[in-house]
Design a protein around this nucleic acid. Sequence first.
RNA 1: GGAGAGGUGGCAGAGUGGUUGAAUGUACCUGACUCGAAAUCAGGCGUACUCGCGAGAGUAUCGGGGGUUCGAAUCCCCCUCUCUCCUCCA
Length: 424
Amino acid sequence: MLDINLLRTDLENVAARLASRKFILDVEAFSALENERKQLQTSTQDLQAKRNASSKLIGQAKAKGEDVSAIMADVANLGDELKAAETALASLQDKINDMLFAMPNLPHESVPVGKDETENEEVLRWGTPRVFDFEIKDHVDLGGPLGLDFETGSKLSGARFTALKGGIARLHRALAQFMLDTHTSEHGYTEAYTPYLVNAASLMGTGQLPKFEEDLFKVNRPGAEPLYLIPTAEVSVTNFVRDTIVKAEELPLKFTAHTPCFRSEAGAYGHDVRGMIRQHQFDKVELVQIVHPDESLSTLEILTGHAEAILQKLELPYRKVNLCTGDMGFGAQKTYDLEVWLPAQNTYREISSCSSMGAFQARRMQARFKNEQGKNELVHTLNGSGLAVGRTLVAVLENYQNADGSITVPKALHAYMGGLTVLK
RNA sequence: GGAGAGGUGGCAGAGUGGUUGAAUGUACCUGACUCGAAAUCAGGCGUACUCGCGAGAGUAUCGGGGGUUCGAAUCCCCCUCUCUCCUCCA
């Protein structure tokens, strides 16, 4: 959520910056609502002050045993007028809030302006795609004989669900363990385990609600508030600090968590239907940092580096992309995507997305720290995939395939595979 | 799943319809006393918002939301969390 004061004082500029990410801010509607709000709030507060004063008088008079009917008559008509004013003000404020909650974050100045992914800026390439001297297969054909079982997945749950068995399941687990261990022991993150079902307030906090409810799996409960399956551990972990005030010296907070992620992929009909690139359920090792506002952009570089380290240790070629304004996610101020080389697709595919959210989430969550002046100030939040486990599995299968269809286990994973060095 | 008790300022803890934004203690800040400190005394001390150039004034806020009332921390309803007991369970 943007700072409403910024909208009040610098509306045109905000609108221009939001336009660069394809969000049209209705400037006229917003100022009209704001003007109306200002007036109505003042008049409502005047009425409230009047009511409070009269009620106080009634109390005083009654205490002395005096007759209060005159004062009572005086405020008799106030009630309806006040109620009407309060209702109108509340609905006005709801409208303003609805606008605010629907507004994406402002892109940072270092973000290239562009309309879509074609205008993203490649920052670097790491590694050299392997040259194969045989006809390569994609992960579906490679994985099938090794335990990658789409049929069972869809029998149990439908399209976009996958079952893993045997060596593939082991490899999947090994990847997650390896990532988690690397981030905790080499990058200084605290391991976290979180609920996979969260309430609406948490999803409001990180920005998935109210705007993207159709992307989520919702669990309705009679007589209780609904819960949602997390679309990413960013939600559960970042919300650790919702409604809290942390000490300045405790920053930065660094958490990593391995969780399943659930996405309805409502808008993705027809995309990536083959294989396990796009699933309703996938595992991810997430990185989250809660930092001092001065540190967010430098931390983004560091955090992205932590995700890159995993790809480098696995010796998977990748490139780093600075997303342009038109391609960034809703809450992001700046985002680097890491794209891994997939030989069967002959292209780089997203395997990690690392973002600085600035104060966007912190404002929604009321996540603050005590600054040097002793005042409460919003923290900044960052998150990144370190990495998406399913897609990493795909990348390992395709990049480490052999002519006979077997898969060489990357060296970094040997310690996690119980002596297995080749899957066949 | 069943029954009960609770949620009040940074912390502890009063308050069950009326000059209550909320006693008291404690923590913290300022001043006095002191060579200095401790102790003591005096004063201050939440957050958000609105109006105002400003001094300042006002509104909201006692887990969250709604209701009753001229007036709600206090009464009613829904949700939520914590604790205790029973039941069940990995």
